[in-house]
Design a protein around this nucleic acid. Structure first.
Lengths: 252, 252
DNA sequence: TAGTGGTCTAGACCACGTT
DNA sequence: ACGTGGTCTAGACCACTAT
């Protein structure tokens, strides 16, 4: 036996749609447990695999989440607001405050996995920074963990000749961070360009950000320019899309 | 029989990882056909469902795409660059050009599904526009189709008392669009705020944007403010994330 | 121990597209 | 007619969680 009745949706999509509607109507709230495979199998009189397929739909839509041995639950969201303009104003990093402090507010933000190194520029990085391919580049890897959950991976690239010997090549860049140091080196960032993309995560990103199925990532590539219009930093960030809302203020 | 060998990845993940690596190494380029279910079943000596599961992984990652009766293929991307700042400068809409023309460049952009109406404000819309809940709001629905593929859904909300009787309530808003008309009505937009989110699409969005599995959407909520700081428009946009890269320029 | 989700099998029929 | 992916079944064993 197989197939759905003519002109109708497949069974698993019908079951998924029914659950989706129940969630959207508020019948199941954030964090609530949904009917499991076995229950769906009986209430809808389908095979286990079909019930599983229905739940897979909701998981891949990011509205449900399964925990092994426990059940399937409605996902809850509580995104952080990331202000793209204010965070880069000179008042923030010029005052010695971290560029990241603004995001956290009342929440617990930890930075781990810091790795600083020097490596030859890859082709795309060299192009953005205006270097010859293979030129030495200082790279700074970091991971941001919010309330125990990793939310952002960051890799910063800077021309090595620009920052050699400065605190930028240390784990702790000092008050005001990289941008304050660049300013001291005569390359104060005055203009930034952010490119935002979104896609499904790679396997590595899923692991590092502990993402569940159905969660996209946002990719922000930020270039910092000094007063001469030279690109002095390229920062590639990978964000858990469920954890962030990006805000940009624009003057006409 | 069941289970994978101790300490190893499940079979379907191993197969998926192998294909993923082959794609990333360039062995399969954009548009190339991948080995199908039956081929994977034989080369890896697994059940059909297991081979399917492996392909599902790649599809949900957005790097492969299946076409019924044909096969599974590596997805190709060609995103449009959407300049968030330049597009909102007065020079663009003040000159009578469409705010959208800049995106398209050499490509074929069509707007369809235009629907203009008036309805009571929902709670979130009323809050953003500073209206009482239930106050009349003019809504403008549009869909943008690029090279035959729908890429953006837009719903614009404006206080009805502000635009009543103006071309804003018509399908064709005239040269310079809604913002030029708002300016003529004494509510020239001088400041904008865009909020960017990303998530997996709803079933309705998947249908309207003709999205394939593994494609997230980006959600842009833009509020336009006039010189008095009053919110005069809320534009909710839903973008095919595979079709767009958002660019924002920021002055320190 | 019982219940949950996770993986896996070996079949089946259907719809679609090509030959 | 044949190959492709799409849906579906009726079992099975495993791993994790709770009681």
């Amino acid at each position: 036996m197989a197939k759905q009745g003519a002109g109708e949706l497949p069974k698993y999509q019908r079951i998924a749609a029914e659950l989706r509607a129940a969630i959207e109507s508020g019948q199941y709230g954030p964090g609530d447990q949904l009917p499991g495979e076995n229950q769906l199998k009986e209430t809808h009189q389908v095979a286990l695999m079909t019930a599983r397929q229905a739940l897979d739909v909701l998981k891949n839509e990011g509205i449900a989440e399964s925990r092994k041995g426990k059940g399937v639950f409605v996902r809850a969201f509580r995104p952080v607001r990331r202000r793209g303009v204010q965070r880069l104003s000179q008042e923030v990093w010029g005052s010695g405050r971290s560029v990241w402090a603004d995001d956290a507010a009342d929440r617990d933000l930890v930075v781990d996995g810091i790795e600083v190194g020097e490596a030859p520029a890859t082709e795309p990085v060299a192009r953005v920074l205006g270097l010859e391919p293979g030129a030495a580049v200082c790279t700074r890897h970091r991971r941001f963990v919010l309330d125990g959950k990793p939310v952002l991976l960051s890799v910063s690239h800077l021309p090595a000749e620009l920052v050699a010997g400065s605190p930028v090549t240390q784990e702790d860049t000092g008050p005001g961070g990289t941008y304050a140091r660049l300013a001291e080196l005569g390359h104060k960032p005055v203009r930034f360009r952010e490119e935002v993309r979104s896609r499904m995560p790679s396997a590595a990103e899923t692991r590092q950000l502990e993402l569940s199925a159905g969660t996209p990532v946002m990719r922000i590539c930020r270039t910092a320019f000094d007063g001469d219009g030279r690109a002095v930093e390229l920062n590639e960030m990978t964000l858990d899309a469920a954890a962030y809302v990006l805000e940009y203020d624009i003057e006409a």
